[in-house]
């Protein structure tokens, strides 16, 4: 079939405006983080002053370190458990409690964070758990494993199942077939799921506020309390660093998924 471009002027305009709307605010933020002036709105020339300020801010650095640790650990646990959940849902056929299982996995995707945060806190209080690194990590794992499960499940669903079946006909047991055939094929989705979990955790304010304890604030909690007091140029610098970190993670992960999926199929949605 011939493929003609059916773009109208209206289509082009709405695309251009939409992308500008999405990117301009972030771009402005990044540019102003290099502003020498103390006044956030007056341009005083290029400078790294606010980055310097951040690296001398012990409380901020500690919060950033806490956030990174939580993000790496929760993303890793969430990827493991979330992948298992995806395998069970897309390859397990029917099993008892399946409806409840998928319900529990899909609900947190849209559940308002205040509810998730409050309910987990009440659990931790009832269990008399000391609040800090581990409670936040568990809370983030609970949220992000659902995203991992969806990303991996959608990849599993689009996979040709005859490949697994062929491996088994050739004498592999299911475990072997999974490790040798399925796992390499869903690897890009697993990587994408880890990235998504990592950034969601790094980003979360509400759930972390509920589940953390005194003295162990995460970066978003610190940023939030600063932002409430007004705009500070230092925050621009921190935000730019976070954006840079996430950009690096995305580039590495997309390179990794390109290397591992020679079919050239795109990774998972989202």
């Amino acid at each position: 079939m011939r493929k003609v471009s059916r773009l109208s002027r209206f289509n082009v305009a709405s695309l251009a405006l939409g992308l500008a709307f999405l990117y301009l605010p972030i771009l402005i933020l990044v540019i102003y983080s290099f502003n020498a002036s103390r006044l956030v709105t007056v341009w005083g020339g290029w400078s790294l002053r606010w980055y310097h300020e951040f690296f001398n801010d012990r409380a901020m650095i500690e919060a950033a370190w806490m956030s990174l640790r939580v993000a790496v650990s929760s993303a890793t646990i969430a990827t493991l458990i979330g992948t298992l959940a995806a395998v069970a849902l897309s390859r397990g056929e029917r099993f008892r409690g399946r409806t409840l299982f998928s319900g529990m996995l899909y609900a947190p995707l849209v559940m308002p964070e205040v509810i998730t945060g409050l309910s987990l806190l009440l659990l931790f209080v009832a269990l008399n758990a000391e609040r800090g690194f581990w409670t936040v990590t568990i809370a983030h794992t609970t949220l992000t494993m659902c995203f991992v499960a969806v990303v991996v499940q959608s990849r599993l669903g689009s996979l040709d199942r005859s490949l697994e079946e062929a491996a088994m006909d050739l004498g592999c047991d299911p475990m072997r077939a999974f490790v040798a055939v399925t796992l390499p094929l869903i690897a890009p989705a697993i990587v994408a799921g880890w990235m998504l979990a990592f950034t969601l955790s790094l980003d979360d304010l509400v759930i972390a506020s509920f589940t953390t304890g005194p003295g162990s604030a995460t970066l978003p909690i610190r940023i939030y309390s600063e932002v409430r007091l007004g705009v500070k140029p230092e925050i621009n610098a921190i935000c730019t660093l976070v954006i840079a970190l996430i950009a690096v993670v995305i580039v590495i992960a997309s390179l990794a998924s390109k290397l591992s999926s020679s079919q050239g199929e795109s990774a998972a949605p989202l």
């Binding site: 933020l29 950034t199 980003d203 304010l205 978003p220 940023i223 705009v231 935000c239 976070v242 996430i246």
Partner: peptide
């Protein structure tokens, strides 16, 4: 992918 809080900020 960039932080939610950052975008509001």
């Amino acid at each position: 992918w960039t932080s939610f809080l950052i975008r509001i900020y």
